[in-house]
Amino acid sequence: MTIKNPYLSMDTFTCVRCGLVVSRQAPEGRPRNHCPSCLHSQHTADTDCQSRMIPISIAVLRNGDWMLIHRCTRCDELTSNPISGDDNQLILVRMAVRPLAQPPFPLEAFGDL
């Protein structure tokens, strides 16, 4: 059974990195799988790994939605999950601009195009 108000839900988990206790239901009503504060997750799809997953990049779907890509620190598995409305926007934007901060080629040449 899903509860309409996620703030009344007693179903919570504790973030493996920052220790924040968060509800399993995002404000949109979807199930949540990463901490909204530090965006770290846990590798629960593999039952015997259960290790910490760190966010490595932002993927943009065709409809404009952002997906968060996690990598497991133990087995290097990659997963993608939709972001929720209360995710830490500062970390999200910092991850989105990180490729532009460290380009492997000079970006000045693109000014002529």
């Binding site: 993927a59 993608s80 490729p99």
Partner: peptide, 9 residues
């Protein structure tokens, strides 16, 4: 799908 940056750039 997307780009990611390793800690060494």
């Amino acid at each position: 799908l997307s780009l990611s940056v390793r800690p060494d750039g």
